Amino acid sequence: MQAHAALILVDVQPDFMPGGALACHEGDAIVPGIDKLLNRQLFRHTVATQDWHPRGHISFARMHAGSQPFQQIPLYGHPQTLWPDHCVQGTPGAALHPDVDWTSMDLILRKGSRPDVDSYSGFQENHGPDGTRPSTGLAGWLRERGVDEVYVAGLARDVCVLWTLQDAAAAGFRAHLLWDLSRPVTPDTDAATRTTLEAAGIGIVESASQLH
């Protein structure tokens, strides 16, 4: 068992899978592997993040007249991608995927619930109107449990997974991406994602089966 490492599963929700409101490329392909990894009980601490938006969230394209999904606009001095409505609180698409056994989770962290601030990372929300990125409290929660290393999987590799990894590394955790248990919004971003991770000193584990 990885005594001082935690597994963080990011946004494994139907809305990010084929047929969902904001489908990632082959997003459903990671579900069996994630369930299998949890069943192996390799980590003393396991965390799931869950995108959990109110209706009319500021990141939804329809809330900005004349805008289209995937367009970028300035918001609070930073670029904000506009998305289709997704992971609306209480909808089936926002649920954690039913084909994963989530009973072993130590923490389910809901994010993106503030109507005026988007939230990609499990560690910090995006920039808000005061210019700061509020903490979710995850870093402190992990440190209190003696965690100094994190392994991250989930969706989307080029957005919420990437931001979670970057924030983990910035907070002083040794961070690794389980590449085969993540998928991007579009595979066109994979080369850039690898470059960004390597530049930040974040490890890439090509197969979760290599974990012991």
Rank of each mutant, 00 (worst) to 15 (best):
residue 203 G to S: 14
residue 140 G to M: 08
residue 54 P to D: 11
residue 68 Q to I: 04
residue 84 P to K: 01
residue 192 A to N: 08
residue 142 L to T: 05
residue 17 M to E: 10
residue 31 V to Y: 03
residue 81 T to M: 14
residue 146 G to Y: 00
residue 89 Q to G: 05
residue 122 G to D: 10
residue 165 L to T: 05
residue 27 G to I: 05
residue 118 D to L: 05
residue 81 T to W: 05
residue 126 N to K: 05
residue 39 N to Q: 15
residue 179 W to C: 10
residue 44 R to C: 09
residue 147 V to D: 04
residue 104 S to Q: 13
residue 128 G to L: 06
residue 2 Q to A: 08
residue 205 V to A: 10
residue 76 Y to E: 06
residue 98 P to T: 02
residue 120 Y to F: 12
residue 110 R to I: 00
residue 31 V to N: 08
residue 40 R to V: 00
residue 34 I to F: 11
residue 165 L to E: 09
residue 26 E to F: 01
residue 77 G to M: 09
residue 153 A to T: 07
residue 189 T to F: 13
residue 89 Q to E: 14
residue 199 A to E: 15
residue 93 G to N: 03
residue 211 L to V: 01
residue 86 H to L: 02
residue 68 Q to P: 01
residue 60 F to D: 13
residue 164 T to H: 07
residue 1 M to A: 03
residue 86 H to S: 02
residue 206 E to H: 10
residue 85 D to P: 13
residue 46 T to K: 06
residue 119 S to D: 11
residue 148 D to C: 11
residue 45 H to S: 02
residue 34 I to V: 15
residue 53 H to R: 02
residue 31 V to G: 02
residue 159 V to Y: 15
residue 145 R to K: 10
residue 65 A to I: 06
residue 124 Q to S: 05
residue 49 T to I: 08
residue 78 H to S: 14
residue 1 M to Y: 00
residue 51 D to C: 05
residue 184 P to I: 08
residue 34 I to D: 07
residue 36 K to S: 15
residue 192 A to D: 14
residue 195 T to A: 15
residue 48 A to N: 08
